[in-house]
């Protein structure tokens, strides 16, 4: 068969495929669209044939373009629905965290060891805390958690809308930090380690300073409610970042590029879950933590949060039926 007669014989089919593809691309499928997969595969066969017989460039290019367009349409991934989100929260996420339990302890240590050290320096050597917070930091801590009732955070939030403003701010800031912790992991884990240790030092210094110079109860009643979501969310984001970074550092038997892609696949549920946890923390922090309730109630809610997380991560999504 000569190139010319090949085009003549098959040309009408290609025009028809082109028409169907255009109609689907424009979201107005025309009659005959159910034939699209078959016509697509025929065009694939034509392309393979044309290439094997080395027909002229323009025939091959025309078919190549048709096949790419068809592939793009037929292999479009289906949109994830609510069902998938529920399944992810009930099964996928706790499983992903359990599977990386070593990283959980590593990231927890990277946060809590500096945190504890800075807390301890409130009693041992306050200069460490002073150096970390700086004058502005100390001043803002005093303005939020100072001894006087008027300076307490519940008082500062009395203006209409301030809760919503802080909610928006926490979403933007804290979830953004989670994403940065994750992204920093690809630079051989360095970014993740930096952010976790930095947050441990800074939050520890803030907590220590409150004990040194402010009213600890106003601080702890404020943070109790959202502490579990936010701190665990940050640790899980750290796990995602470390997983990614370990793909770079320790590719195992894969080539490095492939190892990074595999590690990213494993870290994806972790960072999604971490983002959701931190977003929920922002809701709690915005609308609950600053409300004026007795300290016992606030501590109880905080402890309940930690217990719920423990149960969630240890018990959810176990058993063969869950998947």
């Amino acid at each position: 068969m000569s190139p010319g007669s090949f085009e003549e014989r098959r040309g009408a089919e290609w025009v028809e495929l082109d028409r169907l593809l255009s109609s689907v691309e424009a979201r107005r499928p025309e009659p005959g669209v159910e034939d699209l997969p078959r016509r697509f595969r025929e065009a694939c066969a034509d392309l393979a044939l044309a290439r094997h017989r080395m027909y002229s460039g323009h025939v091959i290019e025309r078919l190549n373009a048709l096949v790419i367009r068809g592939y793009k349409l037929l292999y479009r991934s289906r949109r994830a629905g609510w069902e998938m989100l529920v399944k992810f929260l009930a099964v996928g996420f706790p499983r992903a965290v359990r599977a990386e339990w070593r990283l959980f302890w590593l990231c927890s240590a990277m946060f809590w060891v500096p945190f504890g050290a800075m807390m301890a320096s409130a009693w041992l050597d306050i200069d460490w805390i002073r150096a970390t917070l700086g004058p502005e930091g100390m001043q803002s801590m005093e303005s939020m958690y100072g001894g006087d009732q008027k300076q307490q955070i519940s008082h500062l939030r009395e203006r209409f809308g301030s809760n919503f403003m802080m909610f928006g701010h926490y979403i933007q800031n804290n979830v953004g930090i989670d994403f940065q912790i994750f992204a920093g992991g690809i630079v051989a884990c360095l970014g993740t380690i930096f952010f976790l240790v930095f947050n441990g030092i800074y939050i520890g210094a803030a907590a220590g300073y409150v004990h040194y110079a402010c009213n600890p109860e106003s601080f702890w009643t404020f943070v109790a409610g959202h502490s579990s979501y936010e701190l665990l969310g940050m640790v899980v984001a750290g796990m995602a970042g470390m997983r990614l970074g370990l793909g770079v550092l320790n590719p195992g038997r894969f080539p490095r590029g492939r190892a990074i892609a595999e590690a990213a696949k494993r870290s994806l549920p972790l960072i999604c879950g971490a983002g959701l946890m931190t977003a929920f923390a922002a809701v709690v922090e915005g609308f609950w933590s600053a409300r004026d309730f007795p300290a016992e109630v606030k501590y109880a809610v905080g402890i309940a949060g930690w217990v719920l997380h423990l149960v969630y991560f240890l018990a959810m999504g176990r058993g063969a039926g869950a998947a």
Binding site: R159, F160, G161, S162, F164, M165, M166, F167, G168, H169, I171, Q172, N173, V175, G176, F179
Partner: peptide, 18 residues
């Protein structure tokens, strides 16, 4: 109220950026 819209602006920023 300016505080509500400030919160919305933070959200708009977050979604635009990420």
């Amino acid at each position: 109220g300016s505080l509500v819209t400030a919160g919305m602006m933070s959200l708009v920023w977050f979604f635009t950026w990420w």
